[in-house]
Structure formats: structure tokens, C-alpha cells
Simulated assay, not measured.
Amino acid sequence: MKKAVIMGASSGIGREVALLLCQAGWHIGIAARRLDALHDIQAKYPAQVTISQIDVTTMDAPILLTRLVEEMGGIDLYVHVSGVGKQNPMLEQSIETATVDTNVSGFTRLIDTMFHLMEHQRYGHIAIVSSIAGTKGLGPAPSYSATKAYQATYIQALEQLAHSRRLPITFTDIRPGFVDTPLLSGGRYPMLMDKERVARAIVRNILARRHIVVIDWRYAVLTFFWRLIPNFIWRRMKLTR
């Protein structure tokens, strides 16, 4: 039985990915800050699910993740979905700091932990859910777009590092557009996508061992043209009302 750990499985995309892998017969470890939501998934698939309460921003998160993998008897796939982000055009410091703590510091600790675990076992697949927001610096959400750019660059660097050291580790960077999840509650977003459909696309592309995936085709077109916009024009664009 294939084994996967989903970090950030209590709601949204992470929860849907966990359910899809269970339906496909995987043994999964699910982790998040809220245990109640994890117990709900475990109740549906008691023979396939191992749970752990992990807050990615705490210093003991790597230890808890390692224990979860050991309890499962190894790992084939790690999916990092955990993340936060808000529009913050007024640059409220607490929002910026909390975003960096989760999306950069916590992300780095756990991705590095998983890299070393897979290095030791000599196989594995690391997948992250970043965002199209990392394509350009977005004025309404400075820390969110910057931290998502960091995640994409970090995974690219680790992929090169693994290749240079001849480590059989696969990497996948999933970049969704706006998805209808609790993360986006309270805002108005164009081209909002259904989380179940997005989760199916994520699992499909992970199993196909794709390296970089933009979900969906509309956002692939959008980000393609974003990259073509010169900086002197981009800095003058108004993205807020």
C-alpha cells in the first residue's frame, strides 16, 4: 500500500486531497493544528488513516512529522498544503509576520525534514501547493505573493540539489488560481474554482509526476501574459478598488 502524508489536511484543498488518496487505497498520514477535523477523516477510513496534531510554525513540528512517518512505516509521497494568506493593502504587521512564519519558516522546516527523510530512505516524492500569486508581486497581498514565490523557488532549488547529489526524489509544484476554500472567505475573487475539482487535478498531476502545474488552463494563460508585462507597467497597475 502506497503511503502519503498531507500537511494541512483539516480543510480546503488538503482535506479533499486526503479523501481522494484514501479512495484510491493509499495509507495516509494527515496533520494539521485542528484535531477534530482530522478525526472526521479518520472515522471515514479508520484502517487507512493516521493522524497527528502539528502546527508548522512551532519548533517541534519537524520532530512530530518525523514521528508520524515512523508510525506509518515510511513514506512515498509528502504533500504540503498548509499555508495562510490575506489581502493586506494597509500592511498590517501582524498579518505580514504570520504569513511569513507559516509560508516561509514553517514551510522550510518541514520541507527540509522531508528532504532528509527521503534522502535517507533513497526514494520519495515531495509536492507543494504554492500559488499563481508567486508569479508577480501583488500589491494587495505583499507577503502572500512573496512567500509563494519563495516556495516555488525553494522547491526548484531542492530539485536541482537532489539531481546533483543523485537522489531519487521527485518534486511537484502545484500553482492553483483562486479556489473556493476558507482561506479566501470574505473576499471577492474572479474565476473562483471548486475545491473538489482542483483536488482531483492536483492528485492527477502528482501521480503523473509533473514538475510544475498551473491549475487551471485559464490561470495558465493569465500567468503567461503576466510574465510578459514589463515592470515599469506592472508597478503602475492598480489591482485594488
Rank of each mutant, 00 (worst) to 15 (best):
P230G: 00
L239W: 13
L20C: 08
L138Y: 15
P140V: 03
L117D: 04
I95H: 02
A32N: 10
M118T: 09
F107M: 07
W226D: 12
H163S: 15
D173P: 13
H125I: 09
I155C: 03
K195Y: 01
R218Y: 13
C22S: 00
G106S: 01
V84E: 01
N231L: 14
H39L: 12
Q23W: 04
L19K: 00
G177M: 03
V49R: 06
V104F: 09
L192K: 05
G25V: 02
K2E: 05
I215A: 01
Y45H: 08
I128S: 04
D36C: 10
T170A: 14
T172V: 02
S105F: 13
E96T: 15
L228K: 03
K195C: 07
G186R: 00
I54R: 06
T135A: 09
L117P: 05
H163P: 00
R122K: 14
Y144P: 05
K86Q: 14
E119R: 14
L91N: 14
I128C: 08
Q160C: 13
I13R: 06
I75P: 07
A220P: 05
P182L: 00
T108L: 10
Q42S: 11
S52L: 01
I215D: 03
E196G: 05
Q151R: 04
G137A: 02
V104N: 12
L167H: 07
V213H: 03
I63N: 14
Y189N: 04
P182V: 03
